[in-house]
Design a protein around this nucleic acid. Structure first.
Lengths: 293, 293
DNA sequence: TGAAAAATAGAAAACTCATTCCATTCGGTC
DNA sequence: GACCGAATGGAATGAGTTTTCTATTTTTCA
């Protein structure tokens, strides 16, 4: 980790360097450059041997290429391509690249990652990435049946704990606002089971849980499913323990940062559900909600 | 089980197989399955050692997993993920550009605005805008003194109601997670005043309120300020009634779309504060390493 | 509660991959 | 067309990754 990477830490920057230096590279190295720029995904994924084969050069040419551009070796070069592919750590939009360059140029300090401003930057990028993913996930998701189910329910009971509690609270608030009867199963006074028992046959349970799958929340979903209640789930993937219990499931693949997961996409999805439901209840949409002009 | 189970050469098929076979897998192997589904990109890119580290299992568990599912070894399993990543989908960069163009143009084909997918699109765009604005706001904001104040407080009491309750809950959870003593003033049993009175002289009150400035929340801030307690505020602008009561204020200019406010920027800001504080608490920082290496 | 079976972690072995080095080839120059 | 230096390919080496194996732990069932 000393003076290794020489020139570039960022893919865009790397491309710029390459363009500039291409004329001064030897023929073979230009060929390598050509291939890498044309197949950045391959470059991220395959071994040097495989890449060499595809590019029609010997592996040693690629090693030489990496060194020529100031990397320690192939690994350093490939790291750049991996980053690009992984997302949250890559520059995410043209508008924001300007700022990235500022940082690179030194008009802003690269900075201590513990500086709150740096942390903010990181989380904002993570949120961007998470939203991009949500956008894709949602495109193929069955939102309408989910909203149908919410509409059909006489009341919605919400189970969401720990990391998901914020999203659950927000959804509870949103549903209440549009005039949907909603209850938050907050396990107050350890009355979780009793709160659940208060569910009517026509009611639905909305379960929101991710990743650690808070056992209490999963348990609530199981009990409700066993009791024959409608269970709706928002969770992160097909193996989630609540998925098989629910009649409708929406998946939010979340962008994590360290151990902290971005609540953003789940929040936006819930907003969407609430609003979509709101549109369907004309009298509520017409009614001016409290304290809003 | 005599037939080749591992003939899945397509990611979707693999997920299906996994779903079916999950119950019969051992605990560890389920954990591996879970991680792989949650982080398919990582699975495509990193070595077995790195993946094992991130999933919190020994490398051999992953090898066992691969064999259990009928692959020759890890390589065969990983090939699936690589294929998925390279697949027919647009490259990441292309996707980003597409979104940018759409967002910038602000114009997509109209469609029915009540269609949940349209609603989702709208909210996602709103969230994008809100994040961009937050990015600007945060650049000039005094985050560090705010975090200092949080750190100095022996315990943090959080007042956030109605629309802000979700963000408040999340912040409460986050602070607790990093080992900061935190309390949520939820007005349980109408004991708001008593909950506030339980504040110690060294404690701080974190007020989160926007727009409608929930009177109860403002009242809490006022009481705390009168009692000489440290008041920290997150609100939307300089005219907010809580601004003059607080020793430190952070402003989140609302990214509203129609008349629905996006909770996203407030959420991200709170994440940032929690994480920044977390970095300062050594034992927590050690427990929660970031992905930077 | 105890014995048998299954699952597991970790270290050592087997293997793959990346890099180095040097003999050979290539391209330019006189 | 022959010389020289740079560029190149490929085998040998070394680093890193995966797999296997076994002692230990955990779970299951009587």
């Amino acid at each position: 980790m000393s003076e290794e990477t020489g020139s570039t830490h960022d893919y865009g920057e790397f491309v710029a360097t390459l363009l500039e230096r291409k004329p001064s590279l030897s023929r073979r190295l230009q060929q390598v450059a050509q291939y890498l720029l044309n197949n950045p995904e391959d470059a991220a994924i395959f071994s040097i041997v495989e890449i060499a084969r595809r590019a029609g050069v010997p592996p040693s040419a690629i090693t030489r290429f990496a060194k020529e551009l100031g990397f320690d070796g192939f690994a350093g070069l490939q790291a750049l391509f991996k980053q690009r592919l992984l997302g949250p750590r890559m520059s995410y939009a043209d508008r924001l690249q300007a700022v990235n360059r500022e940082v690179a140029a030194g008009s802003r300090e690269p900075g201590d990652p513990r500086d709150p401003h740096e942390v903010a930057e990181t989380f904002i990028q993570a949120a961007f990435d998470a939203l991009l993913r949500l956008r894709e996930d949602v495109a193929g998701a069955a939102l309408t049946p989910f909203v149908d189910a919410l509409q059909k329910a006489r009341a919605v009971h919400i189970a969401a704990a720990r990391g998901a509690f914020g999203v659950g609270s927000y959804t509870y608030y949103g549903l209440s606002r549009i005039g949907k009867r909603a209850f938050l199963l907050d396990n107050l006074g350890a009355m979780r089971a009793e709160q659940l028992a208060a569910m009517d046959a026509d009611d639905a349970l909305l379960v929101i849980t991710f990743d650690d799958y808070t056992p209490e929340t999963v348990e609530l979903a199981r009990k409700a499913a066993e009791a024959g209640r409608t269970v709706l789930a928002i969770t992160d993937n097909e193996l989630s323990p609540v998925a098989p219990l629910a009649s409708h499931v929406l998946y939010v693949k979340e962008g994590r940062l360290g151990h902290f997961r971005s609540q953003v996409p789940a929040m936006v999805l819930c907003q969407t559900l609430v609003m979509s439901l709101g549109y369907r209840t004309p009298e509520v949409a017409a009614r001016e909600p409290t304290r809003r002009r």
